[in-house]
Amino acid sequence: MIKKKKERLLLINQSGKGGLRKHLCDLMSNLDYELFDVWIAYNDEEVDDLFRQTIKELSDKVRPVLIRSFVRELDIKKDLKTYLIISKLIKKINPDIVHCHSSKAGVLGRLAAKRRKVKKIFYTPHWYSFLSPEFSPLKRKIFIIIEKYLSIHATTKTFNTSYGERESALSSNVDIKSKFEVIYNGLPKIKFPSKIDIRKELNIPQDIFLFGNTARLSHQKNPVLFIEIANEVIKNNNGIHFVWIGDGPLMTEVKLKVSSLDISDNLHLIGSKENSEYLVHGFDAFLSTSNGESFGYSAVEALRAGVPILLSNVMGHNEICIPYENGLLFSNEKTSNIISKVSDFINWEKTSNKEKIVNSFQQRFSIDQMIEKIISNYNNR
Rank of each mutant, 00 (worst) to 15 (best):
T158L: 07
W127E: 09
S59T: 12
P249W: 00
D75G: 11
V38T: 13
K119F: 04
W244M: 10
V38P: 00
R68S: 15
K195F: 09
L170K: 00
F211P: 02
K117A: 05
S376Q: 14
L269E: 09
S194P: 11
V174P: 01
N237L: 08
N359W: 11
K179M: 07
P64R: 06
L20Q: 12
F159V: 03
V118D: 03
I309A: 09
Y149W: 11
F122C: 00
F180W: 05
G306C: 03
D197F: 09
I152K: 15
Q14V: 12
I196N: 13
R52N: 10
F286N: 10
H126T: 01
V174M: 00
F122W: 00
G282N: 01
V314M: 12
K139G: 08
K61S: 11
D96W: 01
F226A: 05
W244D: 04
A113P: 02
I12Y: 06
S129F: 13
F295N: 00
K91E: 13
S264P: 07
F211Q: 02
P125E: 00
P133G: 04
F130W: 07
L150R: 02
K341P: 01
S162T: 12
D79W: 05
L89S: 06
K179A: 09
N238M: 12
N353G: 05
F70S: 07
H317G: 11
K273L: 08
K77M: 13
K17C: 08
N377W: 05
V358D: 01
A105P: 07
S298V: 02
N353V: 04
E325W: 02
I309K: 00
S218P: 01
E165K: 07
E349V: 14
R52A: 10
R21I: 03
V233A: 10
S260T: 14
H317D: 11
K120D: 05
I76T: 14
F122L: 00
G246R: 01
R72A: 13
F345G: 05
G18P: 10
F36N: 04
L261E: 07
T156K: 07
V358P: 01
D26N: 15
D284T: 05
N203H: 13
G186P: 06
Y33W: 04
I86Y: 04
Q206K: 12
R8P: 08
N266R: 13
E34Q: 14
I146C: 02
S360K: 11
V300M: 00
R140A: 07
T335Q: 14
N291T: 11
D75C: 15
D96Q: 03
D247S: 13
T156F: 04
N213H: 10
A299I: 00
T335V: 14
F135P: 06
G16P: 06
H281S: 12
E7G: 08
E34Y: 10
F361S: 02
G212S: 03
L20P: 00
N237Y: 09
M315N: 15
C321F: 04
K91V: 02
T289R: 03
N222L: 06
P188E: 10
I357F: 03
N275V: 09
I90R: 04
N379I: 12
F361D: 02
E333F: 09
L310G: 05
D75K: 14
T155I: 08
F361L: 07
L279S: 03
H153F: 15
K191I: 15
N94H: 14
K104N: 07
S336F: 09
L35Y: 08
F192A: 12
V307Q: 02
E232D: 14
V224I: 14
V342S: 06
K91W: 07
N43M: 13
F135T: 09
K177M: 08
